[in-house]
């Protein structure tokens, strides 16, 4: 923990002093004190919360919808290998599409509001959840399945007591990645066309060569991601507590 802080202190201090010594031009890289001041202003006048709330809302919705679709489809495919074989190339093709090119389409379809961003987040989260669920169900230990069947499990009970928990371990361990992807989807979507959100703030700042604004937006985003990921790893540890 101490060393982690030390790294941050050294980076910020040298950034600040290099600018002060005129070795770096603040027009291009701004300076930490200005960025901090900007964040403080935003916090006080409410700008920060207004935009942050939107970004978080989009990310969460993207995560929930993407997870719901990915988990149910992954489960279905794992249980019906014949169907999975037919759709396999299509899934791979869709996953290969760079999401950025989808953003303008989604803007057209879902408008400037939150739903075009949610859709972008969904396309990212879906595949992570889909592949993990599929793998988790397919990888369920043969012996566990046999044992539970011998103990009298019906097909439904087998799904409930073995297949779902087995897939959940994979899904939980990918939660971190999924959440990151959901935020990326939301921010990229805002960046390319929105009226609110952190991505929008950053793109506005860029439009006026306001590097301080860009860095301030990035910093807020980074802090949020760190806080969320600490929360998620706590949750993951609790959910997978049986894995000592």
């Amino acid at each position: 923990m101490f060393w982690q802080f030390l790294v941050a202190v050294i980076v910020v201090a040298s950034w600040q002093s290099l600018v002060a010594m005129k070795l770096l031009d603040p027009f291009f890289v701004s300076r930490p004190s200005a960025i901090a001041a900007r964040i403080a202003t935003w916090t006080i006048d409410g700008t920060l919360w207004r935009h942050l709330i939107v970004t978080i809302e989009e990310s969460l919705l993207g995560l929930i919808v993407g997870a719901a679709l990915g988990i149910s489809l992954g489960f279905g495919f794992a249980r019906a290998p014949a169907v999975a074989r037919v759709f396999d190339p299509y899934i791979k093709m869709l996953n290969a599409v760079p999401r950025v090119v989808l953003a303008p389409l989604f803007l057209l379809w879902f408008g400037l509001g939150i739903w075009s961003k949610v859709a972008l987040a969904v396309t990212l989260v879906f595949f992570v959840m889909f592949f993990n669920t599929y793998q988790g169900v397919r990888d369920a230990d043969r012996v566990l399945i046999d044992n539970v069947r011998m103990l009298g499990a019906s097909e439904r009970q087998l799904v409930r007591h073995v297949l779902i928990p087995s897939a959940l371990t994979w899904i939980f361990s990918s939660l971190q990645t999924s959440l990151g992807f959901a935020m990326v989807g939301a921010v990229v979507g805002e960046y390319l066309g929105a009226t609110r959100g952190l991505g929008y703030v950053i793109s506005q700042a860029e439009g006026t060569f306001d590097t301080t604004g860009v860095f301030a937006g990035m910093t807020v985003l980074a802090v949020v991601v760190v806080i969320v990921s600490v929360g998620v790893s706590r949750l993951e540890r609790w959910l997978l507590r049986w894995k000592s």
């Binding site: 012996v143 011998m150 103990l151 009298g152 009970q157 007591h161 959940l168 894995k243």
Partner: peptide
């Protein structure tokens, strides 16, 4: 059937594992 490998469900605690057959 008692298997050679471990066949207990790792995500259930000992009591739930033992009770499993009855719950099923």
């Amino acid at each position: 059937y008692m298997f050679q490998q471990d066949a207990l469900l790792p995500w259930k605690d000992v009591r739930d594992n033992v009770a499993l057959g009855l719950v099923l």
